[in-house]
Design a protein around this nucleic acid. Structure first.
Lengths: 159, 159
DNA sequence: TGAATTACTGGACAATATGCCTATTCAGCC
DNA sequence: GGCTGAATAGGCATATTGTCCAGTAATTCA
């Protein structure tokens, strides 16, 4: 899976100004409209672009506290039942299974530190969870981004 | 900051089918077009919706390995210079400063385990970084999502 | 209670974008 | 040389956008 410079420029453009239409993109990039259309279709079909969902800020909704919670789970019973229960908690935004001493890593949000305690209590109550450990994200100097990765394409191209 | 049911339904709709236009949204939601337009403007203005960027999958680009790297940094010198250097690494997708024994948590991606070693080496070379510790995300049973949080709005509404 | 403010509706308009099509050119490749 | 995939430039009917407006609830406030 590799993308070329035009793909990269298209993604970068749409990242900067996401509500642009196909026609406007083609003008900005200096290519034909059909090309942009074809590129977008191809990128979506290949799974490079998975969607154009609205990016919602939990903070703007009052969820000011972000934390990472690692879990140890009971050895028997497997991961799945635990995952299902975690997935049912709205404040759990993301769950990974991980290497190392712990078994899972969750990103959670809460309305305050006190609220975080409540959320953690809910997680601890999940059947199969043996132990949890949390760190609070005080600040996020680099918010999630993929652009540099995309912009890095030149390296993958022969030219 | 609170949103009402219509906002929540609108966000949910756009999350499911992101390329819908304003007109189509208004039809689906059974409200006037102007209402949808006004709601979207308001949600954007309030920062609840921060954008409609294309969601790019690092995995589809060949970055199959995701890891979380925690850093301890030198006490003097501050966080900023370290953050700047980390931000310059494309494979570093996210950086948080955190509570606990470590100082920062980074999400990084790489093309393989061997490539991850390379990326970690780059991070270790960052001036100010004293020590790192990594865990690899083996699987992501719950990918990042905000929808449940948004759908939870009923709780915030008097009705 | 009455007045003011705000949000939603339903409609209009010109300007623009979309989806879909075709013919042609250009590049790399067996 | 002949093939294929990709890009271009253009055309066309339809749908959508941005931007107005007037009328109508619903809320807030004095």
């Amino acid at each position: 899976m590799t993308i070329d410079q035009l793909d990269a420029r298209l993604i970068a453009l749409l990242t900067r100004e996401p509500r642009l239409g196909v026609l406007e993109c083609s003008r900005r990039l200096g290519v034909a409209r059909g090309t942009v259309q074809a590129r977008l279709d191809r990128l979506s079909a290949r799974g490079v672009i998975t969607g154009f969902g609205p990016d919602v800020s939990p903070a703007a909704l009052g969820y000011d506290v972000t934390a990472f919670v690692t879990l140890q789970i009971r050895q028997f019973g497997g991961h799945d039942p635990v995952v299902d229960q975690l997935a049912a908690i709205p404040e759990v935004l993301e769950v990974h299974t991980i290497t190392g001493g712990d078994d899972m890593l969750c990103r959670v949000v809460a309305r305050s530190n006190a609220d975080l305690q409540r959320v953690i209590d809910v997680i601890v109550d999940v059947r199969g969870v043996v132990r949890t450990s949390s760190v609070i994200a005080l600040d996020t100097p680099v918010p999630y981004r993929v652009l540099p990765l995309v912009a890095d394409v030149p390296r993958q191209v022969k030219s």
